[in-house]
Simulated scan of single mutants.
Amino acid sequence: MSTVQIFATQDSWIESAALDQCHQVAALTGMIHVAGMPDLHPGKGAPIGAAMTSTVLYPYLVGSDIGCGIAVFPITLKRAVAAKLATRFPDLDRPLRIGDGDPAWEVADGDVPAGHLDGLGTVGRGNHFVELARVDAVADVVHAGRLGVTTGDLVLVVHSGSRGLGERILRAHTDVHGAGPAADPGEYLARHDQAVRWGSLNRRLLAARVAHALGAAPTEPIVDQCHNLVEIRDGRYLHRKGAAPGDGRDVLVAGTRGTASYLVAAHAGPDANYSVAHGAGRKMSRADALRRGRVKHTVAELRRTPVGSVVVCGDRQLLFEEAPTAYKRIERVIADLVAHRLATPVASTVPLVTYKTADNGTGTRPDRRPRHRGRGQR
């Protein structure tokens, strides 16, 4: 019989709908263990913030944004005045094109996975973002030294996924098999792995585009962890949906655009399916956040955050949907990871500029085509 374990303390709030989804997943054929992270919240058909081990591969447990993850890139700037830097962010709704001469291409190594050029170099919608942040405090000098970060350092945090490629892969499966298992796991995994590589490449290109725009040299990431993927571990399929690999990895657990985020050294074991939280986790649906936010906040208020950072977002609805108040307290999530001995905090970062989509004030208009609208952080 499969088991369910939730890695949250009694002080944490977990929606009953998310718990129900964990037990529904646990009832699937071949399921062995479901581990819910402290950022657990309901998703479309499966929980977000969960790691699920099974003898059977279920593509829908990974979802459509295969390869979505968070990467952290050091960046060196002479001055970091948020209001000025916000105006210099490039239009990350405009995709890169082969042969367009953009210097960001210099970080690309080899061919584009799956030859998928649509949306390359763009951030996407929903909970995705590119952020210039400052290292606010170091909690573990040994781990921080290993990563090469210290208080006051600047970093680019990039959260994006496979920009339509993963959706195409999932749809090819669901059109035939619905929410059922993969008929040919090897074939699915081959395409899945391309989407994971594509997501990592996209994060590098996004960071390079922003670095060049801000007058800095692109750098290699000190962290780049995918949190929507499946891997084979000990002969079983380990599905992660909004859960980062925690088996000795370094992970950026994202807060909100108005709170800190945390670099952690993860050391999760088998009970947690070798996974940790990937962010703060929503406490409001997008509809609720939009309805409540319009009563409490103005657009101008949401363009500045409680920590003094600037938000670049030309989509007013998205500003409300992704407001900091729509999320759980990141400090509670980190405390739960520590309480369950899943991770060691290394350093906190605070946002200076958070980019969601091109701002109308810059003369660009946000792309209104349908986008992935995940329910994770931001």
Rank of each mutant, 00 (worst) to 15 (best):
I6N: 09
Q10M: 10
S12G: 11
A18D: 12
L28G: 05
M31W: 01
M31H: 02
P42T: 09
G45A: 09
L57I: 03
G63T: 06
G69E: 10
I70S: 04
F73H: 13
P74C: 08
L85W: 09
L96Q: 01
G99P: 11
E106M: 03
V107K: 05
V112L: 08
G115Q: 03
H116S: 11
L117H: 12
V123D: 00
R125H: 08
V130W: 01
L132S: 01
A133V: 13
D136P: 03
V142A: 14
L147N: 11
D153R: 01
L156E: 03
V157G: 04
V158P: 03
V158I: 14
R168A: 15
L170R: 05
D175E: 13
G180K: 02
A183F: 00
D184E: 12
Y188Q: 04
S200R: 12
R209G: 00
R209L: 01
V210S: 02
A211D: 09
A211E: 07
H212F: 13
T219F: 01
E220C: 02
P221L: 08
P221W: 01
V223I: 15
V223L: 12
I232H: 00
D234T: 09
Y237F: 15
G242A: 11
P245Q: 06
R249A: 15
V253E: 09
R257C: 09
A265T: 09
H267Q: 13
N273H: 09
Y274V: 08
H278T: 13
H278G: 14
K283F: 01
L290K: 07
L290Y: 08
R291V: 14
R292F: 12
G293P: 13
G293L: 06
G293R: 02
V295L: 09
A300L: 06
P306F: 10
S309I: 07
V312W: 00
V312G: 07
D315P: 05
L318D: 11
L319Q: 10
E322V: 07
R329A: 15
I330S: 01
E331H: 10
I334E: 02
R341F: 04
S348R: 08
Y355D: 07
A358C: 07
G361A: 15
R365I: 01
R368I: 07
H372W: 00
G374I: 05
G376N: 05
